[in-house]
């Protein structure tokens, strides 16, 4: 049968920052083809295909909380594959090859991680499970 794709709405204007992204206006509708754990979602309109940040998309059919994983306060061990410097006060700055605990894997690609007493958002694409090869 036909593949039914979910429709999402842009919550704000988004201007592409690399070649294969889409630029869209607030209120535009897109179909989501693939949800990458990086938080970049592959989307299509009638005339274009490309990547959009999940943080700018909301489901047309009301909140889709069933897809959000629950936090795991015990934490799951990951390590950073690249350094990242916090740009917002709720993010965490870490160097490369630092072991941290992931306590909430969010679909938008910003995971809540814990390092000692510190907690904050970190890009999931800069994390890998400890012990796994890059």
């Amino acid at each position: 049968g036909p593949i039914i794709l979910q429709t999402y709405r842009l919550i704000a204007e988004y201007k592409k920052s690399s070649k294969h992204e889409l630029s869209m206006k607030a209120g535009d509708l897109v179909e989501v083809v693939e949800k990458s754990t990086s938080g970049w979602w592959f989307c299509q309109t009638e005339s274009h295909r490309g990547w959009l940040p999940a943080t700018y998309l909301e489901p047309l059919e009301g909140p889709d909380e069933s897809e959000d994983q629950e936090p795991n306060y015990e934490g799951e061990l990951y390590q950073t594959t690249k350094p990242y410097k916090a740009e917002q006060e709720d993010e965490i700055s870490l160097e490369q090859d630092v072991t941290i605990e992931v306590i909430h894997k969010l679909l938008d690609g910003w995971w809540v991680v814990r390092k000692g007493e510190q907690t904050g958002y970190y890009p999931s694409m800069l994390l890998q499970k400890t012990g796994e090869k890059r």
């Binding site: 919550i11 704000a12 920052s17 690399s18 294969h20 992204e21 693939e34 990458s36 990086s38 938080g39 970049w40 592959f42 295909r49 490309g50 990547w51 940040p53 999940a54 943080t55 700018y56 990242y84 740009e87 917002q88 006060e89 709720d90 993010e91 306590i103 909430h104 938008d108 690609g109 910003w110 809540v112 907690t119 904050g120 958002y121 890009p123 694409m125 800069l126």
Partner: peptide
């Protein structure tokens, strides 16, 4: 390829849509 996601982290939500501190 167009099907490779961008290599930079996606932006945080627009300011008015940001979640509260974890």
């Amino acid at each position: 390829s167009i099907r490779e996601p961008p290599t930079n982290p996606p932006p945080r939500p627009p300011a008015e849509h940001r979640r509260k501190r974890p």
